[in-house]
Amino acid sequence: MLLFDQKAQAAFKQNKAALVGLAFIVLILLIALFANILAPYDVRTQDIMQRLRPPSSHHWLGTDEFGRDVFSRILFGSRVSLFVGVTSIITAMVFGVLLGAYSGFKGGWIDQVLSKVIDSLMSFPSLLLGILIVSAMGPGIRNATIAIAVAYIPRFARIARGPTIVLKENEFIMAARACGATDARVIFRHIIPNLVGEIAVMSSLWISAAIIIEASLSFLGLGVQPPMPSWGMMIKTGVDALHMAPWLAVFPGVAICLSVLAFNLLGDGLRDLLDPKLIR
C-alpha cells in the first residue's frame, strides 16, 4: 500500500514535525492506558480541607473545589479525550467513506440525492450539530461520541466521493468490472486503497477537532458527566472559580492544546508526505 513502502517511510522519518506529533500521541496513549498507575491520587478522593490549593509538592497542579488532585484528574481525563476523539472519528470514517464511495461510484440520481444531503448536513458546524444531538439524546460520553461521529460522517463522505468519481473512469476499474467483479469488490479492492492517504490525513486532523468538540461539550455540561473527569468540564469549573484558583482552568487547557497539537502535527506531516508536489 502506498503509505507503507520504503520510500514513504524514509520520507516520513525526515519530517520531524510529524514524528514529534506521533511521539506525542504515543505518549498520550500511554498516559491514558496507565493513568491508574501514574496518577498519585484517585480521581474521586476528596479532601475538603485541601480544596482550592495552588500547585505544591503534594499536589503538583493544585487541587479543585472538592480537594481532588488536579494532576491525577488530568491524567485520567486523557482517557475520555482520546476515547471520544478516536472512536467518534473512526466510526465516522467507516460510515462516511462507505457512504461517499458508494454515492460516487453509483452516480446517477442516487449520487445526486446523497450528495445534496451530505452538503446540507455539512453546512451545520460540527459543534452545533453536537449540541443538537446531545441535547436531544441526553448528556454522557456515549452520546457525545455518537454526536461527533454523526457530525463527521458527511465530511468523510465528501472526501471519499470526489476521488471515487475520478477513479471509476479509470481503465483498471472497467477491467475489473468486465471480469465480473461485484460493485462491492471493486469499491473495496480498487477504490478504497487509493483513498487511504487522504483519509489518514483528514482523520488525524479531525481527531484533533473532535477532541476540541468533546471538550466544548463537556464545558457546556453536555459531555461526560461527573465524577468522570473531562478536561472541558474541569475548565468550566475553573472558569467559575477563576478569581480564586486560576490554575484549575489553565492546566486542563494545556493538556487539550498539547493533545490537539500532536494530532495536528501528525496530520500536517502526513499531508506533506502525500503532497505530489513535494515528492522528489
Binding site: S216, I256, V260
Partner: peptide, 12 residues
C-alpha cells in the same frame, strides 16, 4: 498553536 488552542481556552 492557534489552530490547536480551543477559542474558549484562549479567551480564558
Amino acid at each position: 498553536v492557534g489552530l490547536s488552542t480551543p477559542s474558549f481556552y484562549l479567551g480564558i
